[in-house]
Design a protein around this nucleic acid. Structure first.
Lengths: 121, 121
DNA sequence: AACAAGTATGAAGTATACTATATAGTTCGT
DNA sequence: ACGAACTATATAGTATACTTCATACTTGTT
């Protein structure tokens, strides 16, 4: 079990941001019953996984709300199996859409580059 | 030449947002010299292209500042040919990175889906 | 014991990207 | 000429995602 500082070091995400994510409901740490002198929060390896997932998903334009949907489908017990699969399938479609758009942007930029290279002909 | 309303209709981007983009320096319209009764701004087809590009680039997680870099390389005369190509090559690399990340996210979600489907075995 | 470093909490501040509001002038159809 | 619809400008407000600050307690090292 890890403290927040170690979590930050393993993922490169600032402590403040990790706290913000936790407050947003993207994951929870646990207070250890046996420790009574402080109220430090401990995090499991699942939290590291989630943080890495959040990093990737954010980099490609998903909002924290969208990421939360996936993470909830991923771990929350309250949600039905069918509902979880539905959320994930929806995200998979969105990702394919984004890949398509990235390829379109790439094509645009390639055309633009070609034009610049040949502009004084 | 188009007025802002037509621009909005062709792209689906709200007028307020288009004005905001113009103020941000993503493109400029032109005032017509010959028209003296008003100060309406007219936009060419290049602006429609730019707006469509902005839509796509935003959808895949580029910020307006990053998009401005590309658009400046695309059209600004002040910037040297070499500098333009450099900017575009950097963006192309970023896009490949994003595609890689999207594929990683997709894999994560697929694993997650598999786990949910088999969770009560 | 002292003190740097780590942790928790709450609240305020910042950056980005809009979105809405108010005001005022213009154009167009009838 | 009237009114609806369109345009410009400036300013304020909102949502998202942090980031900083202030306060206070805890842990580990010397």
């Amino acid at each position: 079990m890890k403290l927040i500082n170690q979590l930050s070091k393993e993922t490169g995400i600032p402590i403040g941001t990790i706290r913000f994510y936790e407050k947003t409901g993207l994951f929870n740490g646990e207070k250890k019953e046996e420790v009574k002198t402080n109220n430090y929060v401990y995090y499991g390896d699942d939290v590291v996984d989630k943080l890495r997932f959040i990093q990737m998903a954010k980099a490609v334009g998903f909002t924290l709300a969208e990421i939360k949907e996936v993470v909830d489908a991923w771990y929350k017990k309250q949600i039905s199996k069918k509902a979880k699969i539905e959320v994930l399938d929806k995200k998979l479609l969105q990702i394919d859409e984004k890949i398509k758009e990235l390829k379109a942007v790439k094509k645009q930029i390639a055309i633009c580059k070609f034009n610049i290279q040949n502009e004084d002909l």
